[in-house]
Computed example of a mutant assay.
Amino acid sequence: MDAVRVRPMRKDDLPSAERASAATFLEAERVTRRVSDPEPEPRSAEASRQWIARMGFFLRIDPRGCWVAVDTEEAADTVVGFAISQNRGGLWYLATYGVLPGHQGRGVGRRLMDAALAHADGRPGIFSSSVHPGATRRYRLAGFSLHPQMRMIGTVDRSTLPVVDGLREGGADDIGWMDQLDRRLRGAGHGPDHAYLLGIQRLVVSRDGDRPGYVYMDIHGHATLLAAARPDTAQNLLWEALATSRGTTLVNCITSPNEWAVDVGLAARLDIGQEGYIAVRDMPVPAPYLASGHFL
């Protein structure tokens, strides 16, 4: 009898799910590590707390999209797999998904993905995917197109930074037009995700007539979510993020329709490489747009 049961996630699953996530993605990074890449490191205590807070937010907002696989033979239903998805208006996205290495190849991932996709109820979908062969096979069989994405990393050459005008600090009163821009680019607004991100990250916006745009930045100045009506606005927003970055910076989730970001990164003397896929179903790849790994 199969000891692994797939069921809706509960709040008290979050710590066990975080441990499963940390172990799953650490092993995936080790397996896919390139020779030039640094040795993967375990998730920090602070990053673990952030993961739990973020997934707790998803669980509060749209609990029916949150699923876990638990080993009923272990104490307290130990989480061995997870699929956290969300519906936002007419769009579905997968925030995170994984199965512990020791439980892979047994159909657990398929059952989790089936549960998450049932929640989509036919909506167009988007998520950021690793290069794990088992996962990408499952995504393609579910009807998703896999678009290779790039990442740029390095220390910004400060002498390359241009003067950027027309930007200002953003706030809660910007969410309305930001959601309108989201709908134009990805078919649905971020809705409550904007309020959550505003509480933990810096928001910079452009309100220049027909050229609106916004970028969220984490404490390191990394652009974590960027949307704009035009590529030149998107470039200005990315330059602002690079100007505030400290030490080694990262720009990721760059797809081929967003080569404007490649041009900025190369001009700033960052190195370019490949990193996973943006998976979409029944929708184009958004542009000008840099997706967030969890909020898409």
Rank of each mutant, 00 (worst) to 15 (best):
R110W: 05
R110G: 15
R110M: 11
R110C: 07
R111G: 09
R111F: 09
L112R: 10
M113D: 05
M113A: 13
M113C: 04
D114H: 08
D114N: 13
D114T: 14
A115M: 11
A116C: 14
A116M: 11
A116K: 07
L117D: 09
L117M: 15
H119C: 11
A120W: 07
A120Y: 08
D121P: 03
G122P: 09
G122T: 10
P124K: 09
I126T: 14
I126F: 05
S128G: 12
S129H: 03
S129L: 12
S130I: 12
S130D: 08
V131S: 14
H132W: 06
H132E: 14
H132V: 12
H132Q: 14
P133D: 07
A135E: 05
A135N: 06
T136H: 07
T136L: 06
T136V: 15
R138S: 13
R140I: 06
L141M: 11
A142L: 10
A142F: 12
A142P: 06
A142G: 04
F144I: 06
F144Y: 15
F144H: 10
L146A: 12
L146S: 12
H147V: 15
H147T: 15
P148N: 02
P148C: 08
P148S: 12
R151Y: 11
M152W: 15
T155I: 15
V156Y: 02
R158T: 06
S159F: 00
L161F: 00
P162C: 04
V163A: 09
V163G: 02
V163H: 13
V164I: 15
V164R: 05
V164C: 03
V164N: 01
L167Q: 04
L167P: 01
L167C: 01
R168Q: 14
G170C: 08
G170M: 02
G171A: 05
D173I: 06
D173K: 06
D173G: 09
D174P: 03
W177R: 07
D179L: 00
L181V: 02
D182T: 02
R184P: 03
R184C: 03
A188I: 05
G189I: 04
G189H: 01
H190S: 08
P192F: 02
D193F: 04
D193M: 09
